[in-house]
Design a protein around this nucleic acid. Structure first.
Length: 326
DNA sequence: ACTCCATTTGGTCGACGCGA
DNA sequence: TCGCGTCGACCAAATGGAGT
């Protein structure tokens, strides 16, 4: 068990709000346990090869507790690695803190409900791959694909050390090296379909060093520094910008059009006009347009499905505005 | 009430044509 | 030659509609 003391600037931190505000928290291997308000998932040790299951709880307003499910205690460098991943997921950095405060000053509702900390993955690699999984498909299929990727990861590890029997270790989201080893063909057949090409190609350019994810994570990095990735159009790009803390560009998809029609009463909103419509509505909140948009989306989903943080994981696939199969 | 089969859905890619 | 917009292909599953 390790404790993570939140900085003095992070006075209003709420784990539940920091997690349950983006579809990402519903995607494998993340698991939110409503009854205990626990975030649980495997995280990687410093060698990035081994993963351990970690349960994250908030024990007080300024204290997080991480329970690491490991038979033995960890060396400091592994504890640091895990803390880094938790900090990334929950955006526990000075920069994020600063941005959230500035956005909330522009947006009274956000301030009131404590919105602005958009949940993300422990690594940029995972965020990029998940952005590809969100394209061109239903939310249900996106969830399935993430699940399958984690299953393949678990199987791969199992075959590696097959002498240990009955270890039903939960799979982690594969890293770049593991995706490369899985290969295009296996992933294609494993429900990624044509996306397998994009995912493997991206993993290869990360492994070869052509794309340096660490440098993109630096606070000084700008959106222009983001490399061209096959499979990444405007939607996925805006989505990953949001992960990186650039909120100026909305991830426009069919949900956006539905939202503008339904919530903003714009009757004639189409693929062609949506870009302009979005400017009209959200530029007031520049450079935090995404946050304003996301707040509205979450509020809409919650009026329809109830609090996301209390939802059963069996219902995650239902979350969508356009299809009404409740 | 059921089976089929065709159509639609989702975002991006690459090819294409247009006008400058 | 350039950038721009348009459009079919991609894949899998949900949906619609016609026929029993």
């Amino acid at each position: 068990m390790i404790e993570l003391k939140l900085g003095v600037g992070v006075s209003d931190f709420n784990l539940e709000k920091a997690v349950c505000n983006h579809g990402a928290f519903m995607m494998a291997p993340n698991q939110w346990i409503p009854s205990s308000k626990t975030l649980q998932r495997p995280l990687r040790l410093s060698n990035s090869d081994t993963s351990l299951l970690v349960s994250i709880n908030q024990s007080s307003s300024s204290l997080l507790t991480l329970q690491i499910h490991s038979p033995r205690s960890l060396p400091p460098k592994d504890e640091v690695a895990i803390l880094d991943q938790v900090a990334r997921m929950l955006r526990l950095t000075e920069k994020d803190e600063d941005e959230i405060r500035r956005f909330q000053n522009l947006h009274p509702t956000a301030k009131q409900i404590g919105f602005g900390r958009i949940f993300r993955s422990p690594s940029l690699f995972e965020d990029v791959v998940k952005s590809i999984l969100m394209c061109n498909t239903s939310w249900r299929r996106t969830l399935e694909m993430a699940e399958k990727l984690c299953e393949v990861q678990a199987k791969m590890r199992e075959s590696k050390k097959r002498k240990r029997k009955g270890n039903n270790e939960r799979g982690n989201f594969p890293n770049a090296r593991e995706v490369c080893r899985m290969g295009v063909e296996a992933l294609k057949n494993h429900c990624l379909g044509y996306r397998a090409n994009y995912v493997v190609k991206f993993a290869q350019s990360v492994e070869s060093g052509r794309i340096n994810l660490q440098s993109l994570e630096k606070p000084v990095s700008s959106p222009d520094a983001f490399p061209k990735i096959k499979g990444f159009g405007p939607f996925a790009t805006a989505n990953i910008f949001m992960c990186l803390g650039f909120y100026h560009q909305l991830p426009i998809d069919t949900e956006t059009i539905r939202h503008l029609k339904q919530v903003h009463g714009i009757q004639y909103c189409t693929k062609k006009t949506v870009g302009e419509d979005v400017k009209q509505i959200y530029d007031t909140y520049a450079p935090y347009q995404c946050l304003a948009y996301w707040l509205e989306l979450v509020q809409y989903y919650e009026t329809k499905f109830g609090k996301l943080s209390e939802l059963s994981s069996f219902d995650y696939h239902k979350i969508s505005g356009s299809t009404l199969h409740l």
